[in-house]
Design a binder for these strands. Structure first.
Lengths: 112, 112
DNA sequence: CAGTATCCCCCGGGATACTG
DNA sequence: CAGTATCCCGGGGGATACTG
């Protein structure tokens, strides 16, 4: 979540388990419910639904239901959600650059 | 935490409740244990200790105990921790810029 | 001052099964 | 296919009290 910005009464939960991953899955175009489940290995339909609803509520994604049988529902990043891709990349870059250091810090902390 | 970067086996928990805030409290210089408790309103000593230990373990902060009575322990951002300030700023900037949109998105979602 | 020591609670998230 | 409906569990985090 977006912390450190003083008393923000309504924190955006980017720190939860799935939101960031979902944004990544949607950043290259719209995806259907079942298409999201594949890369998000291990997510259950219940949790995926909850996450998507929350993101929809916050204006990060849009949900479009195409009527018919079988049903087809498409999720897409809203502009607001897209604007998060940059910041996410920043964090990812940090992680990729510094993870080794963190790991070795942990090791030297252990053996001590 | 740093998600969306593929199976990172050891995620850094920036998404937890306190880590980011602690970094903010330390970014302008070292602070003592009790000095940290003030801006981190509501944190209990137990949780602050746990958070600090985890950050120390990951090489984000250093802990220096000055012997004597009363005890004096100083926490300081390690280089690795300092390198997180930039990314954190990025997220903060996003939050400040887009929080109003999120809030209004929530409202229009509610009334519907 | 800088922590430990206990106890406890909530809820995010998982497992499984069922349905329009 | 795209979800609901239930049930359930662990652990992050809080409250409170105590100590070197």
């Amino acid at each position: 979540m977006f912390t450190g910005c003083a008393p923000v009464t309504a924190p955006i939960r980017i720190g939860d388990k799935w939101t960031a991953k979902i944004i990544r899955c949607l950043q290259d175009g719209p995806r259907r419910f079942s298409e999201l489940k594949v890369p998000l290995t291990g997510i259950t339909p219940k949790v995926l639904t909850e996450s998507l609803r929350a993101m929809e509520r916050d204006g990060l994604v849009t949900r479009t239901a195409h009527p018919g049988i079988p049903p087809k529902v498409v999720y897409e990043l809203a502009p607001l959600g897209h604007s998060l891709v940059g910041p996410l990349d920043t964090m990812c870059a940090w992680s990729r650059a510094n993870l080794p250091q963190v790991l070795s810090a942990r090791e030297s902390y252990e053996s001590r």
